[in-house]
Nucleic acid binder design. Structure first.
Lengths: 201, 201
DNA sequence: GTCTATAAATCGATAGAC
DNA sequence: GTCTATCGATTTATAGAC
């Protein structure tokens, strides 16, 4: 897991990369029990170090959380590229498939789950309301050239968030165990409807 | 709010119904900041009493939470009656409309929001996974006579939970401000699809 | 770079006076 | 029935030894 570089001169920066071990442990704790439920002590214990070291490297609990939330992917890039390029009548399928591909990648999951848990925790509302929705999702709708994106994208978000919540956080069967193809078959038509189908009013 | 009965003999039970004031304050705190975020002291302060009184009336924090979760309605009765009686092709619309009617009632909202917040808090998963879904939702699907209810109802739940989350917890516009009719128009076709439409596999 | 020791705040819960 | 006082357990965070 830790790449040792024997030819290195001078003092080693940290031992076998304690810093990264702390961050990984923090991500898993945040994903497992949320921000409020995570204690610095538990993170330190999971990383096999003392609690003071966590503060030493990452400052306050808030700072550690921000560091743990650093996503391996830029959702704007990945989603926009996959969804906007191609036929608009298949955008729903591409969006669901891309979402699942990112979420099913074990490298991404802890940070993503921690992020969604934070959104659903009291006080985390702005992350979705003022962040992901207007900054990532609505612009995608605009670039797709659909009408009323500020209504269509929240409708879409309500379905995608519900799926994410049940599959990855609450772990409801059979949703949690279905493969990506089956989920795409189930959800793509609904997402497509929100993108280009009829609207109320 | 408090019915005074002047002819009553003997010592009055509590003052102007402190017990109910504590419960109402607890409901609002649990709905506002969740179970973990709620402190006995904050409940007591909101009710204008001392913290020890809360323990005196309701025992532990868990007991208080259970008392605060007591729903004014039995979801099984309300949902089953509204959804099962009538044409199966309109069941989606009746389900969405009934859900919204219950949720938009100010008397129900604090307890319902507190309940969903608990579901979305780490450790609350069994409430939905082993409670609401198999006890309330799947039986409704069975009584409707649809095929594969154990797949259809989780699909349906993912959409309804997403709507509930965005409208009442995260408060995302325009979902939060739309009236029930507009929401029914937007979501009933999707819910109906999950009930009686095509499935993957 | 890593740890011990501890400060300072807050929590749930209890005992007991009035 | 209501409150004061307080215990004991946890928490984040810091200071400083090694």
């Amino acid at each position: 897991m830790t790449s040792v570089r024997p030819g290195r001169r001078g003092r080693r920066p940290g031992s076998p990369d304690t810093r990264a071990a702390i961050l990984a442990a923090a991500r898993e704790r945040f994903a497992e029990v949320g921000y409020a439920g995570t204690t610095i002590r538990a993170v330190a214990a999971a990383a096999g170090v003392d609690g003071a070291l966590v503060h030493h490297y990452y400052g306050s609990k808030d700072d550690l959380f921000l560091a743990a939330l650093e996503l391996p992917v830029d959702p704007r890039e990945v989603l926009a590229e996959a969804v906007v390029s191609g036929d608009r009548d298949d955008a729903g399928e591409r969006l669901v498939r891309t979402f699942l591909a990112v979420w099913d990648d074990p490298d991404n999951q802890p940070a993503l789950i921690a992020l969604v848990r934070r959104v659903l925790e009291p006080g985390g509302e702005p992350l979705l309301r003022d962040g992901f929705l207007p900054v990532v999702l609505v612009p995608i709708g605009e670039r797709l050239g659909i009408d009323r994106p500020e209504l269509r994208m929240p409708l879409l978000a309500s379905q995608v968030l519900g799926l994410i919540t049940l599959r990855y956080l609450v772990v409801v069967e059979p949703l949690a165990s279905m493969d990506a193809d089956a989920l795409v078959a189930a959800y793509a038509p609904v997402v497509q409807r929100y993108l280009t189908g009829p609207l109320p009013g």
